[in-house]
Design a protein around this nucleic acid. Structure first.
Lengths: 346, 346
DNA sequence: CTTACATTGGAAAGCGCTTTCCACGCTATA
DNA sequence: TATAGCGTGGAAAGCGCTTTCCAATGTAAG
C-alpha cells in the first residue's frame, strides 16, 4: 500500500543502501547526480519514511514523552506549549499523557513511554513529597536503558535531570513583599499536602510570615484546582468565624489576605469570596502563584509570583533533548503586586 | 542493554514465538503452565515490549496524532483532554502537535504523523473556509494508506470523518435569544475571516440579526485570541465614535452588545472595555461562544453558547479509533445567558 | 492396533529501515 | 607500468517483534 524505500530505490535504479543514504541524512552522501535521481523518485512516489522502522534500525525514536497532571489546566498547557515548541524545533514529536493527579496513572504513562522507547521523558506534574519508589525504580530502569528523564522539581534519582523552580523562595518573596506593604492577617490555601510544589510554596509563605513575626490565621489543605481554592476559601471563612473579614469588623490590622499555592486556586478563592458577597481586594485580599496566561483577562488583576511557564517547558525539553545536559537549571520569577492584594490605595 | 523478548524466551526456556504469544495478546494462547513460566520470566527481567518493533511487525502503532492551533488555549486544551482521555482508555498514545494557526505547520504535523504511522489523526484546529489543497492531498494519501482522519468541521475529503459542531445554529440561537431579551444594538467580533469556525459563528450571528430585522453596527475581523478580541473591541469603539456606548449617550435602544466568535475573544473584549472605563454589562454587554472552563472564575459571568468541549474531544477520538465509525457526529450546545449580556435587570 | 484429527511449540520469513563491510574503479605516486 | 590509497555503490546482517507454516505429540474413533 504505502511506498517504501525499496520502491524509491528501484525507481531510481539504485540500491536500498544508496537510497537510504540520500533520503535520510547520513555521513556518506552519494554523488550529486545519483542523489538527485533518488530525491526525484522519492518525490514522485510521495515517499514518507517509516519512523517506526527507522527507530528500530537506529534505536532512537525522536520521540519525547510528556506527562502532566491535567492538560486542561493553564499551568500545564502553557508548559506543554513550551515543551512542544522546543521539541518541534528539534524535529522531535511529543507524546502526551495526563496523570489526572494519580501516581498510578503517572507510572502507567511512563511505562507506556518506555514501551515506545521515547528518547526522553518530561515529568511536568509535581513530584510527591515522599517519592514513589515504584516510579523511581521504573525511571531508573529507563535511564539505565539510555533514556533521559527531566522533572519539574527533583525526583530523588541522581541521574535524572530537573528544573529547579523557585517555589519556596518565590513564595517567601511574595509574602514578604505583602507584609512590607502593610498586610498582617494571612491565611494559607496550601493545596495538597503531598505535592512537593504545593508544600514548598506553603512553606515559603510560612517562613516569610515567621520572619516577620507573624503567624497565619489558618492553613488549609485542599485540591490544587480552582475548585480546591474555592472550597478552601469558604472553609477558611467558616473557620475564622463567618464574618471575620467583613469591612465593618476589620481591626486596624487591615484586611485578611489569602495566600494560595497557585493561581487557579486563587481564582477559585476570589470566586468564593464573591459568592459570599465579599469584595476583593476591599474586604479580602488574595494572592496566587504562577501568573498563568488566563490572568490577563481576570478582574481583579491577581497579585502573584510570575513564573516563565512556557520557558520552563522549553528548558525542560532542552534538558531532555540535549545529550550534554547541564545539571539542574534554576528558574526564578518575580513578585507581581497587582490589584488583588498589596496594592497601595486599597 | 534493554531486555528483549528473546531474553524472556530464553529464560523461560521456550521459543520466541511462544513468548510472543503469551506476553502480547494473541489468538493462540499457550498452555497455562508455559504461559505462567513466560510471564514470570518477563516480570523477573522487567521486560517492556518495544512498541516500535511491534508496530513494524503488526503495521499498527496504537498511536493517534492530535493537532491543535495552540495547546495553551483553553478551548484546545479542553478538547485535548477529551481526546487524551478516550485514547488512554483504549490503550492508545497521543502524539501532540501545535500548528500555531499556521497551515504550513499543520501540514508539517500531519506529515510527521504519517511518518510515525499513527493509526489516526485528529485535526482539532478549525478548517479554513477554502480547503488547503496540499493538506487535503496529503490527508487523502494518508487515508489511502489505511489511516483514519477526523476533523472538527468538514475537510472536504469524503473519506474523512468529522464532528459537526453547531457553530452557525448555536450563534444563531444565542443572538436570537439576546434579541428577544431586548438587545438591539450589536457589533460582531468575527475573528479571522478565513477560519471556518469563526466564519460560521459570525454568519449565525448575522442571520439571527437579519431575522430580527436588525443590522450589526459593525463587523470586525481579528485574531481568534484574547488579544484579538481586545484589539477588535477597542477598534469597534473607535469606529462607533469614542463614547458610542457610554450610558449617558445611550438611546432608548439599550446598550451595545458585542458578539464575539469565541470566549477568549469575549474575555479580551471585556478587558478592553474595562480599560476604557466602561462597565460590562452596564455600559456594554458582551457574549462569547464555547463556555471554556476558565469562565468558572470570571467576573462578570460570561453569556455564551455552551459547547461540551471535552466531549467533543472524546467523540473525535472515538471516531478516530473505532474502525466502524459512523459518519459525522453532530454536537449541539446550549445558550447560556449569564451576567455579561442579556440578563434581565441589567 | 491403526488412522484421523486436534493441539501445541518452534523455525523462519518478513515488517522497513540503517549501517558495516566489500568490491570495484579511479587517480596519484614511485 | 605497477601499486597504494581513496571515493563510491551494493550486499547483507541486523533492530525486536508477529505470524504463518510445520512437525510432533496426544487423543478419540474405527
Amino acid at each position: 500500500m504505502t511506498v517504501t524505500l525499496s520502491d524509491v530505490a528501484r525507481r531510481a535504479g539504485v540500491s536500498l543502501a544508496t537510497a537510504s543514504r540520500v533520503v535520510n541524512g547520513s555521513e556518506r552522501i552519494p554523488a550529486a547526480a545519483i542523489a538527485d535521481r533518488v530525491r526525484a523518485a522519492a518525490a514522485e512516489l510521495g515517499y514518507v519514511a517509516n519512523a517506526q522502522a527507522q527507530a528500530l534500525a537506529r534505536s532512537a525514536t525522536r520521540l519525547v514523552g510528556l506527562v502532566v497532571h491535567d492538560i486542561a489546566d493553564p499551568y500545564f498547557s502553557t508548559i506543554a506549549r513550551g515543551v512542544q515548541r522546543w521539541a518541534g524545533q528539534q524535529g522531535q514529536q511529543v507524546l502526551l499523557a495526563s496523570s489526572d493527579h494519580d501516581p498510578a496513572a503517572e507510572l502507567d504513562a511512563v511505562t507506556a513511554f518506555m514501551s515506545y522507547r521515547t528518547d526522553a521523558i518530561v515529568l511536568a506534574g509535581s513530584r510527591l513529597r515522599t517519592p514513589d519508589p515504584a516510579l523511581n525504580q521504573t525511571l531508573a530502569g529507563y535511564i539505565a536503558g539510555g533514556g533521559r528523564v527531566v522533572s519539574l522539581g527533583a525526583t530523588g534519582i541522581p541521574e535524572a535531570q530537573h528544573v529547579d523552580i523557585a517555589n519556596e523562595t518565590g513564595a517567601f518573596a511574595l509574602a514578604t513583599e505583602l507584609v512590607s506593604l502593610g498586610l498582617q492577617r494571612f491565611a494559607i490555601l496550601a493545596g495538597p499536602e503531598q505535592l512537593a510544589t504545593a508544600w514548598q510554596r506553603a512553606t515559603g509563605f510560612l517562613r516569610a510570615l515567621a520572619s516577620a513575626g507573624l503567624a497565619p490565621l489558618a492553613v488549609l489543605p485542599g485540591g490544587f484546582t480552582s475548585r480546591g481554592g474555592y472550597d478552601a476559601a469558604l472553609e477558611c471563612m467558616v473557620r475564622l468565624g463567618g464574618a471575620a473579614a467583613r469591612p465593618d469588623q476589620r481591626t486596624q490590622e487591615g484586611p485578611l489576605c489569602l495566600l494560595a499555592a497557585n493561581d487557579v486556586m486563587a481564582l477559585g478563592a476570589i470566586t468564593a469570596m464573591r459568592s459570599l458577597g465579599l469584595s476583593v481586594p476591599r474586604d479580602v485580599q488574595v494572592a496566587g502563584f504562577d501568573d498563568i496566561p488566563t490572568l490577563r483577562d481576570h478582574s481583579p488583576e491577581l497579585t502573584t509570583y510570575r513564573l516563565p511557564l512556557e520557558e520552563i517547558g522549553q528548558v525542560a525539553a532542552k534538558l531532555a533533548l540535549a545529550a550534554d545536559a547541564v545539571g539542574p537549571v534554576h528558574i526564578d520569577g518575580d513578585v507581581l503586586i497587582r490589584e488583588s492584594a498589596g496594592r497601595p490605595g486599597h
